[in-house]
């Protein structure tokens, strides 16, 4: 017995506003993109005949195809870096830091930037990366470089550097959650049975945190795939990835082309999430 009776109509009424809201703001718009991407003809009207013309036009262009692969490669790199870094940090914070006070301080220092603007954090990288930027000044001052390195700003390196600082938390958070759930008795049991620490990690700890790793990877994947703002801020107009193409087409009033790119982006993401769900059953996470 609780303040809501199981299966009561009240539950439906309470769930209704959020359902309608999410339908109107997420489901219908996303469906609309798919629909618009099939519109034939030239006019922007719901009466347009349905056709595959937009897709044919997109796939006929080699540059765009290369961009799809480029985006996937960039995303995979980010997943690897953020994943490894995020796991190490999570492991350190949960397992290695013994003092609760220090753990709280480090954890807050790690998490607080999530509540600040990602756009501002991306912009904050700009004075760092330029030819006269902080990194180059430091390199020159310490004598590590003879002349300014130009690879940082308006380059993929710079974008990656900023994105690592933005998204490592997302790879790390779910791992922290899973690590904290492991009962210490389990590790004691493994060690009583004379397992080496490396074996304990490989056979007990890592498999138990695998759901966290996968969810973290999904979050990094989704965010990097769709992150046009960082690319635009640091890459200027020199570098574009798939999400930037959506913006470019949209601003160039090529709505249907933008819809095609958006659908492709969506398909990549769905494939990624589906692959992750095969490894981990997300519903079981809340139960543990």
């Amino acid at each position: 017995m609780s303040s809501i009776r199981p299966g009561s109509p009240a539950a439906y009424w309470l769930a209704l506003p959020a359902t309608l809201w999410m339908m109107a703001a997420v489901v219908v718009p996303v469906g609309m993109i798919v629909w618009v991407s099939f519109w034939g003809g030239r006019a922007f009207s719901p009466d347009s005949p349905l056709s595959l013309d937009n897709y044919q036009r997109f796939f006929a262009n080699r540059t765009y195809l290369a961009l799809v692969l480029e985006t996937l490669r960039h995303t995979a790199t980010m997943m690897l870096i953020c994943g490894v870094l995020g796991y190490c940090i999570a492991y350190f914070l949960v397992v290695k830091v013994r003092s609760p006070g220090w753990r709280t301080v480090l954890f807050l220092a790690f998490v607080i930037p999530f509540w600040t603007s990602a756009l501002i954090r991306a912009i904050a990288w700009v004075p760092f990366l330029g030819v006269n930027g902080v990194i180059n000044q430091a390199l020159l001052a310490t004598g590590l470089a003879e002349k300014p390195v130009e690879v940082f700003l308006y380059s993929r390196t710079g974008i990656s550097m900023a994105q690592v600082s933005l998204y490592t938390l997302m790879a790390s958070g779910p791992v922290v959650y899973m690590l904290a759930q492991i009962p210490p008795a389990l590790l004691e049991a493994a060690m009583t049975l004379k397992a080496e620490p490396v074996t304990v990690f490989r056979r007990v700890i890592f498999p138990l945190t695998l759901p966290g790793v996968v969810i973290g990877q999904v979050l990094v994947f989704l965010n990097v795939m769709a992150d046009f703002a960082t690319v635009q801020t640091i890459g200027g107009n020199k570098i574009a990835l798939l999400p930037n193409l959506v913006i470019n087409f949209y601003e160039g009033a090529q709505i249907r082309a933008a819809a095609v790119v958006a659908v492709l982006l969506m398909l990549c993401m769905l494939a990624g999430v589906a692959a992750a769900l095969r490894v981990v059953d997300v519903r079981r996470l809340g139960a543990t």
Binding site: A18, T19, M22, M23, A25, V26, V27, V28, P29, V30, G31, M32, I33, V36, L222, N223, M225, A226, F228, P243, V246, I247, Y250, I255, A258, A259, A262, L265, M266, M269, V273
Partner: peptide, 20 residues
């Protein structure tokens, strides 16, 4: 349905809503 709000990227939601 609610979790979809986290999963669906802002680019797609915003663009789709502009179309609607």
């Amino acid at each position: 349905l609610i979790l979809l709000g986290i999963m669906a990227p802002g680019l797609l939601v915003g663009f789709g809503f502009a179309l609607v």
